[in-house]
Design a protein around this nucleic acid. Sequence first.
DNA 1: TCTTATTTGTTCGTATGTATT
DNA 2: GAATACATACGAACAAATAAG
Lengths: 255, 255
Amino acid sequence: MTSRSQYRQLADTLRAAIVRGDYPPGSQLTSEPELAEQYGVSRPTVNRALAILSNEGLVRPERGRGTFIHELPVMARAAVQRYARPEREADGQARGAFDGEVRRLGFEPRSELIEVGPVVAPGDVAEALHLGAEDVALIRKRHMYASDVPVQLATSYVPWTIAGGTRLTEADTGPGGTYSRLAELGHPVARFTERVTVRTPSPEEEDFLRLTEEQKVFSIFHLAFDQDGRPVEVTVHTLPTHQWVLDYAWPIDPS
Amino acid sequence: MTSRSQYRQLADTLRAAIVRGDYPPGSQLTSEPELAEQYGVSRPTVNRALAILSNEGLVRPERGRGTFIHELPVMARAAVQRYARPEREADGQARGAFDGEVRRLGFEPRSELIEVGPVVAPGDVAEALHLGAEDVALIRKRHMYASDVPVQLATSYVPWTIAGGTRLTEADTGPGGTYSRLAELGHPVARFTERVTVRTPSPEEEDFLRLTEEQKVFSIFHLAFDQDGRPVEVTVHTLPTHQWVLDYAWPIDPS
DNA sequence: TCTTATTTGTTCGTATGTATT
DNA sequence: GAATACATACGAACAAATAAG
């Protein structure tokens, strides 16, 4: 192919160099003007090549500073195991599942509770939880980090008729987390569904996850049903696609 | 807010117009030179704006012809139900699951068997199926369409020690498809795992799915285990992220 | 605090290439 | 072959963010 564009060729070259390890993770890439001269192309062409690598999550350009090699490897989210009881109760905290996922890779997990309290849930959440236009839900919004790098955003909703006045409205939900409290409240969770989509991040997600508008995120709409088949909890997870893989497992004919 | 770039603003404007329905699905968008004049920007800026919408899967630029509004809505892949027996045996064909997914939206499903026969499986497949470097697997590679629009690529592998000399090596695997044959061969499937990743398409996938290099695809690594816990089948699905959502469902503590 | 140099982000005008009609 | 349409590239310039003095 004579006609692979220059910016793609340059992107390929630089990608190979990064993967090969010529630039260690976290280090600074050669500046755009220098690359332009080295490879005999114009600066906009270099910029376009770097935009590709940026969208792939391989580098992080920062205006005024330079372009840096992204450091975090890919993490795996095990959708099924993470909701099993042993995993949740591992260290007496609700964040057991995320902790394991991150620690397994040698990083230090951290969660911040950003918001907790009664709210009117967004349309799709309200619909899933069978909430009317007036009904209120408990929101629990968390920011999650791996070694201080933001990696995930999770927002949970529980109908206020269930959660109101319980420990679910407190910062620390106690051993086993939300699902253990729901069980104590007469709503033991029996079944989950998840819907996975890929989309561009919202401005808020861009900001927290340090993404550009061209990068993509997984949006996971997680719904829990109790033994009576009543939907009792929704969590919306947002994860950069270049940072995560999703694992699922199930028996045939689960019925 | 003074500084949202022109190409992003234009992309926002055009996206809104398309979503609003100003341009019907399949219709041709105003040409780049005309848009440049209408909005008082240069042609490269228009081109950059359209690149965004192209990556989002909203439009399809075709060199020499024009830019067209993409027509297919989003399809849902129900990972759990699609492997349940009733779904598979619905019309006596192995492609029952995909058929249902597509027909449900009012489109006409079609599958083409591209390749079938013994091959040396790729590394990750061989590892999952516990195949040695010399071992051979049956490959079944399909192209899938919805109303003649390519929407999915699926490649299955079964160890040749299981599949060799059976109906699995024929074009038509018979009622109930691969899993029914595996059951008859003494390998009834008991459990599935799937690993979902998002990546840029390979050149072959670009070509078949009509994608650009910047667009993204789901890559689903699907693995089936028989009752003895032996891995008996791998299917790698490739789906454009803008065309599909993935649904999962499972009971708590599936043991 | 102010200034200046450096670095990335964006835009234009212009030109050329390639594919389609 | 000619006209049209999208794809790519260059050089120049300015904007915005950062760092260093």
